[in-house]
Nucleic acid binder design. Structure first.
Lengths: 122, 122
DNA sequence: CTTGCATCTAACGTCAGTGTCAGGTTCTAG
DNA sequence: CTAGAACCTGACACTGACGTTAGATGCAAG
């Protein structure tokens, strides 16, 4: 498939796909005229990358741990594996932060609820 | 206290405090010579603001819901209260995203663990 | 063959929070 | 009184993941 189809199937912009390739996150074959072609499997890969972006990873970090995705059973660099574990832990810490902030907002909501008819149930 | 002390007590940079004031998140009184002075209570306030930043709120959003912090028992604008509830929900959705991404990383870690001596327990 | 939509490269624009620098002023310790 | 640390305003720099534009080219349908 060409880049437009991958974009709509994976739910990202064409611009983003070119950027991901520039960052070494995805690859493509080129047609005679120079247009990018992708296999069906790239859809999943792009969705996975999007999840990592949503989790706050930078493209550089994603690039560093992608070897573990491509060949999970080979001897990837120990660095990539350690990166994987570090990012998992970082996400866990971030979840803690978010929950703390949400609790603070919940207390504020309770303190303000009486003065607004609106329900704000959890 | 002056700006340097507030900065070190709240764990932020002096630059950030000036920026927060510019964005209407904190206020200060000025000495005869023009220097900012703060009360002890500002430390908590800045820490609260930091939590919201960490939760991904923009300074504009924070500014919009601060009325609910200042006078929780008065009739704040309904907009501020709705903002509060929306942001709480947004944080909850973000937590879901993070957990999804973390699960994906956990699966990757499991698939790679056999080839690395290192423990990566949850 | 032509029309026209999709794609190409290259480059600049954006946003938000903060770092940093310059050049000047205020405050405090000795 | 004076040195020097802390503070002031104003402005430019930076980062990162894109949006957007321009001008040229590829490609499928009629």
């Amino acid at each position: 498939m060409r880049i437009g189809e991958l974009a709509s199937r994976a739910g990202v912009s064409v611009r983003s796909l070119r950027y991901y390739e520039e960052q070494g996150l995805i690859t493509s074959t080129r047609s005679a005229g120079g247009q990018r072609h992708y296999t069906d499997g790239e859809v999943e890969r792009v969705e996975f990358i999007q999840r990592l972006y949503a989790a706050g990873l930078s493209s550089r970090t994603i690039a560093e741990l992608l070897p573990c995705v491509e060949s999970p059973s080979e001897q990837n660099s120990t660095e990539a594996f350690e990166r994987l574990v570090r990012e998992r832990d970082r996400i866990s810490r971030h979840v803690e932060e978010l929950v703390t902030a949400r609790d603070a907002l919940d207390r504020l909501i309770d303190a303000n609820r009486a003065h607004h008819g609106r329900l704000a149930a959890r």
